[in-house]
Design a protein around this nucleic acid. Structure first.
Length: 147
DNA sequence: GCCAACGTTGGC
DNA sequence: GCCAACGTTGGC
């Protein structure tokens, strides 16, 4: 299993909205960047990701699961763009801020720190464990429903 | 609201 | 294939 990080401006699509979608999840549409798209193409059902609020909050607020692999993005006719579907798994009790990640030596290589503009990022198992620990959240999969 | 970083586009 | 111009993201 691999780990990822999904950025969203809460003004556009927030964790609360993601949670409200429940197990149906939400298509992660709108990505128009090759690196981010390639990351989505590499995802498998069951992979876990952090849900990060950019601009407002600038913190990891939840954990999501990939529930459908990459398929054409329904919001464009351009065949270059794909997206996955993710569902909220559980909130992060103590949201992990960007500042906290920058201050943590174990996260110095994290894409969130080194490649700020990438909207869908890979996360290493080590980084995953460190951020989960900082956030006070269990790091493993959870097949129960969120609500 | 500004601007640095970075990705994409298009002229040559 | 280079690079200048331009657009977008996202931190500040």
């Amino acid at each position: 299993m691999n780990f990822w990080l999904f950025k969203s401006e809460p003004d556009a699509w927030s964790w609360d909205q993601q949670v409200a979608r429940g197990d149906a999840g939400e298509e992660w549409t709108g990505v128009r960047n090759y690196q981010a798209r390639n990351n989505m193409r590499a995802m498998k059902v069951g992979d876990l990701g952090f849900f990060y609020h950019s601009n407002i909050g600038k913190e990891v607020v939840g954990i999501v699961e990939v529930i459908r692999e990459s398929a054409p993005d329904s919001t464009t006719d351009d065949p270059r763009w794909d997206c996955v579907v993710i569902r909220a798994v559980r909130p992060v009790p103590k949201p992990v801020t960007l500042d906290a990640c920058k201050a943590e030596p174990a996260l110095a290589q994290m894409a969130l720190v080194t490649n700020t503009r990438l909207s869908v990022q890979p996360v290493t198992p080590r980084e995953w464990a460190v951020v989960c620990d900082m956030g006070g959240v269990a790091s493993g999969p959870d097949h129960s429903t969120i609500s």
